[in-house]
Design a protein around this nucleic acid. Structure first.
Lengths: 247, 247
DNA sequence: AGTTCCTTTTGATCTGGGTCAAGGCTCTGC
DNA sequence: GCAGAGCCTTGACCCAGATCAAAAGGAACT
């Protein structure tokens, strides 16, 4: 994995998320102005990026690594409400305090923008607002798909759904082998999976074991998964088998 | 309730949702252009506005009444993923087919825009894109709050949460009596409530009865609810009692 | 005032997933 | 090579909510 030098600002032109992040539509002129207000921050696995309720003086994009967005009730029950992958946007323009806890689950690099200048720039740069709208609409769709998972699926279907989502994402980035087996690294602990799916970690463990026993998946170590037949997994997830992807 | 004449286009200036809908930021010049591409449609309670997968040639705003956004699995399990109130936006610019079923739960009037002209106008009118971004971010927050409800709350907490949301909305529109009792009409059947909360309608009925028995709420008829002490209801919902509203 | 169609309530029973508890792996550090 | 700390798995038991079934409103007809 290519290291990113945090001491000097990388040129946006070379950025790995240049064409998928909030800056995707910007022209070189606009990028230059963004470079003036951006800075990189590195977080280690397990580190908290922001606590819910904290004052937030930046927004930004995940450049590499993975973070989670979680909500916690007073008595400690927690629910993950977002999974942030490279190019995903963190923070909400126009909001003072963070609404959720953001935690890095792997080592992570963020490209941060100071909030005030970013907001001001957003007012004057339709390209940024347009792209952010697109990304937010996508996130809303993802959240709604997730609501179906949380509200109506069984534990086994929930696990299968989560694995499909991760497998699909990896397939998009890497080879698009439609027929063959798919292998990927699981970036979440059993507990994080439980928080994602509204289950307990014991149930997650049991259902992963069950899917393995039934030959739907196989694991090397705890965190590396192979899906011999993607269609079978989608079947278990209770999704339309035709894999209909929304635009 | 004031009737809306569908035969002639109402002037946007007189529109009840003028300042909360997607057109909220438009100036009179922009409104004029919107009036050229808009038309009203009326739906009766129970009528389907769009089926998931159908080609959608319009987007629009709910003017009056209530609609639901639902997702259905092949075997018939359904989950509500959105509750559309007056001023809420329906449809996604840039998308061909509807992603969800939209059903009117009460008589409803929509202000529709033909999709192609609307999309084109959005490109050239930052005021519309900006407002739509704001509204989408709000919806995303609502979806995430809902995910916590679906994933981690008990049946009783779910019911209390739903009632709080509806009560809060009504309080915002009508009197803002912070201390006193709150009364409102429940616009959903028990089944719709169940679809919202990921429960069965029997469980909904039982929990409503339980909350009534415990004096948290009282009902006149099936669909009219009084909350003597809003704090007590919020307590039951498992929310922070300080009623912290996000910006 | 009775018939039909819906919605809602209530009861009885069942079960998926939660809870509590005990070990098992794997890596790190001594 | 073993002690400790994190994760993860597995087992035994229990309960909240689902399921199945019946009956009770209530509104709109005749």
């Amino acid at each position: 994995m290519s290291q990113i030098d945090l001491s000097v600002n990388q040129q946006c032109g070379d950025c790995p998320i240049r064409h998928r992040a909030v800056c995707a539509r910007c022209d070189s002129d606009e990028l230059e102005r963004l470079e003036d207000i951006k800075y990189y921050r590195r977080f280690e696995a397990g580190q908290t990026v922001i606590w819910s309720g904290d004052r937030m003086d930046f927004v930004g994009s995940v450049v590499s690594g993975i973070a989670t967005l979680t909500q916690t009730m007073e008595d400690g029950r927690t629910q993950m409400v977002g999974l942030l992958l490279p190019s995903d946007f963190v923070g909400r323009p126009g909001r003072e305090a963070a609404a959720y806890d953001v935690v890095a689950t792997t080592d992570m690099v963020m490209c941060c923008f100071r909030k005030a200048p970013f907001e001001e720039m957003m007012e004057r740069t339709p390209h940024i607002a347009q792209r952010l709208l697109q990304m937010t609409l996508d996130e809303l769709d993802a959240a709604r798909e997730w609501m179906l998972v949380l509200g109506r699926k069984t534990a086994r279907e929930k696990i299968a759904s989560l694995l499909s989502i991760i497998a699909r994402r990896d397939a998009t980035l890497n080879l698009a082998g439609l027929g063959g087996p798919v292998t990927f690294a699981l970036p979440l602990t059993r507990e994080a999976m439980a928080d994602y799916l509204g289950l307990t970690l014991e149930t997650v463990s049991r259902q992963v074991s069950a899917l393995k026993k039934d030959g739907i998946i196989s694991l090397e170590g705890k965190r590396h998964i192979t899906v011999p037949d993607m269609t079978a997994l989608l079947e278990e997830a209770g999704d339309d088998t035709d894999g209909g992807m929304l635009i």
